[in-house]
Design a binder for these strands. Structure first.
Length: 579
RNA sequence: GCGGCUGUAGUCUAGUCUGGUUAGGACUUGGGCCUUCCAAGCCUACGACCCGGGUUCAAAUCCCGGCAGCCGCACCA
């Protein structure tokens, strides 16, 4: 079977898009370099992403460290979930948590012991595979986070971040103030994340160091609508819902509006995000028929999410691969960081109408209260504020005394010390944890998808049909033959293009055909050719990569024309119409 | 992490079994000649035995170990 992947990766390596890192030291699995052209392509994709989320949606970008202290990742759940001691059965190849196997076999809690100790226990106690009775391997740590030490003394444990999202949750209070305390708002971050995969061998699909572009959108849990939903309501999405997956059905092709109406996607705002992702992928040149949205099955969904959709792209080599995850993370992260840091990460939501409630409050008689409890009086009063007045009242009615236990002491509160008063209180709102809608883009996989799906072989030509604004090199300039006057003229044209901010190259090597071929192979959308006629009438030809057509224009018009073509202000066919 | 297969210029490959001269070829790339529009031709140059040990007079070739790649298993909160 023909694998486009092989051709694409070979050309990517040959032409300077992508290659595996540390090659002269025989390489390390899971690491890739972006070469000269790959780096431009990736940056253009990231900037396109910024156009969507930063400019289009108004979500500001932040940049946080890639090394994070242990506490932060403890709160996020990453530390505890990634430090499992593992052991494998040599017979049936089943993998187990070593501490669980031991606990089951000898009933002793062994959590926290070193791998070496666990290995010794397994061999001493002759613990065998709980499934088939086979022998177990030595215990190894199964930790997807790269650990490091912070500071000269190395006392503080740090980790390379496993996702950029945490860097947004942690400064939430400052971000909330930046947005002047109002929901909804979004914050984005583009950057590297790290996962120490056991055995990555899917090229750029499974990397140990990879680039994410994530948006965290904080919303009121009671309002998951989107003000601009009408802009996307008619967009047709390919939805492979959990229900359909379970019965092995075909994905739905329905409009965003129907998806919401039928409850296929859990909320309007989540659906809106799917539409945004769909448009983004299409603008990168990914054909519609290789894009689908696959909903996570209940069993695979992270425990904190209530709905999650992966954008998947079809590849010949790896099948459907996840390139974007769009999840409703609920309030899990903010709640957890609140607990661990003891900072209140809630948002005050004001009601449309303030409500008044009637409430019984407890009022101490300070003339008696103070002298009786002396120094303890203030803390007793503070505690009283937290206690429901009704329960005190009931205690008085029953026993004529309320026993208040505080810091190991019991205080006898009698009716003469307290009075009750019914007050009306105006409640203007409440403090809640926002829910988080998270589109998370894997930039490396997206870059790979763009390379894969823009590539074509046509009549022995290798071409990357990149969208014009994504192509690494904007335009190539060629003298038709290597005569001094033509070369000189070509140099000037290249320099004028560069002055316009366009990445332009001159190529005088080989024949004109070879130059066009090289140009196509790196996906340069346009080529300017200087020929004999140029010397007579100051015109050159512009050639379009995809159609191989050429039109003749004045040299003086070249920079402006190429510029307009590259920002999609005009199309090549517009030039044809003029000539 | 386990098992199987593989490793020669940028790419593809001959040579490896059966150790023996200067590791051969094609494409690509650089320079030149020629050439007035899509990888033409001619001349010329650059460029390789995955790494480390061992056996041997002698290792690309045989042996051991490592690393990397591919395939399968496992893993992928």
């Amino acid at each position: 079977m023909y694998m486009k992947n092989e051709d694409v990766m070979n050309i990517a390596k040959k032409r300077g898009f992508l290659w595996s890192s540390f090659e002269i030291y025989s390489g390390v699995a899971g690491f890739f370099d972006y070469g000269p052209l790959g780096a431009i392509l990736k940056n253009k994709i990231m900037n396109k992403w910024r156009e969507y989320y930063l400019v289009g949606e108004g979500f500001y970008e932040i940049e946080s460290p890639t090394i994070m202290p242990e506490e932060a990742l403890k709160a996020s759940g990453h530390v505890d979930h990634f430090n499992d001691p593992m052991t494998e059965c040599k017979e049936c190849l089943e993998v187990f948590r070593a501490d669980h196997v031991i606990k089951e076999a000898i009933g002793e809690e062994v959590e926290g012991l070193e791998n070496q100790e666990l290995t010794e226990i397994i061999s001493q106690e002759k613990i065998l595979c709980p499934r088939c009775g086979g022998h177990l391997t030595h215990v190894w740590s199964y930790n997807l986070m790269f650990q490091t030490l912070i500071g000269a003394k190395g006392k503080k444990t740090g980790y390379m971040r496993p996702e950029t999202a945490q860097g947004i949750f942690i400064p939430f209070k400052r971000l909330l103030r930046f947005y002047r305390g109002k929901l909804p708002f979004g914050v984005v971050q583009l950057g590297k994340a790290y996962r120490n995969e056991i055995s990555p061998r899917q090229g750029v699909i499974r990397l140990r160091e990879f680039t994410q572009a994530e948006a965290e959108i904080f919303v009121n849990p009671k309002d998951k609508s989107h003000p601009c939903f009408q802009n996307v309501a008619q967009q047709i999405l390919t939805l492979y819902s959990a229900d359909i997956q379970e019965v092995d059905g075909e994905p739905l092709q329905i409009s965003a509006q129907e998806a919401v109406n039928q409850g296929v996607v859990s909320s309007e705002i989540l659906t809106y995000q799917l539409c945004l992702a769909d448009r983004f992928m299409e603008e990168l040149g990914i054909p519609r028929d290789v894009i689908r949205f696959r909903q996570h099955l209940k069993t695979e969904m992270a425990h904190y999410a209530i709905d999650c959709w992966d954008v998947e792209i079809y590849t010949d080599r790896y099948g459907w691969i996840e390139v974007i995850g769009i999840a409703d993370r609920t309030d899990f992260d903010l709640k957890s960081h609140s607990e661990y840091s003891t900072e209140d990460l809630r948002v005050f939501i004001e009601y449309d109408e303030p409500t008044t409630i009637k409430k019984l409050i407890t009022k101490p008689d300070m003339k008696k209260f103070g002298p009786l409890f002396k120094g303890d009086a203030p803390k007793i009063m503070n505690t009283l504020k937290e206690i429901d007045s009704e329960s005190i009242k009931q205690a008085f009615e029953k026993e004529n005394v309320y026993q208040l236990e505080l810091d190991g002491e019991t205080y006898q509160l009698t009716p003469d010390l307290l009075s009750f008063e019914e007050v009306e209180e105006t409640v203007r709102g409440e403090r809640i944890y926002p829910h988080v809608i998270e589109p998370s883009y894997g930039i490396d996989r997206i870059t790979y998808s763009v390379l894969l799906h823009c590539f074509a072989q046509e009549d022995d030509r290798n071409i990357f049909h990149f969208p014009v604004d994504l192509a690494p090199v904007g335009v190539n300039v060629f003298p038709l033959v290597n005569k001094d006057e033509l070369v000189l003229s070509a140099q000037h044209i290249r320099d004028d293009l560069r002055a316009e901010g366009i990445i332009a190259e001159l190529d005088t090597s080989g024949t004109i055909g070879r130059r066009y071929a090289r140009s196509d192979e790196i996906g340069t959308p346009f080529a300017v050719t200087v020929d004999h006629q140029t010397l007579e009438d100051e015109t050159v030809t512009i050639r379009e990569r995809d159609s191989q057509k050429q039109v003749r224009i004045l040299i003086s018009k070249v920079p402006e024309t190429v510029c307009n073509l590259l920002v999609k202000k005009i199309k090549f066919s517009d030039l044809e119409d003029l000539s």
